[in-house]
């Protein structure tokens, strides 16, 4: 039965790598700035899920902390970029 779990983890890693490729293509091509911010948002979530897959595969909890940090700081970065696009500055006086 553990072969099935191995297959699932490999398949999920492949899917996340393909999804990161899609996000990277949109990040490079994206016609407007908001497309690039959206692509970056998708990119960091896929990277976080890839780290979780590594954590399942090596059965440690170190990768969980990294995934939590990536989720936190990626959210802060996306909000800052969206705020910049909305107002022209991030921290208003």
């Amino acid at each position: 039965m553990t072969d099935f779990l191995d297959f699932a983890v490999n398949f999920a890693q492949l899917c996340f790598a393909l999804a990161m490729t899609c996000a990277a293509i949109r990040l490079l091509r994206g016609p407007a700035a908001q497309d690039r911010v959206l692509a970056l948002d998708t990119f960091y979530i896929n990277g976080m899920l890839t780290l979780l897959m590594l954590g399942i595969r090596s059965s440690t909890t170190v990768y969980f902390d990294m995934a939590l940090l990536i989720a936190l700081f990626g959210f802060v970065g996306s909000i800052a970029l969206a705020k910049f696009l909305l107002r022209g500055e991030v921290i208003e006086p």
Binding site: A12, C15, C22, A23, T42, N46, L49
Partner: peptide, 13 residues
């Protein structure tokens, strides 16, 4: 979950 995420990213592309 992996298929859902992949479909979302392909849709964005």
């Amino acid at each position: 979950g992996a298929l859902l995420t992949l479909v979302g990213s392909i849709g964005m592309l």
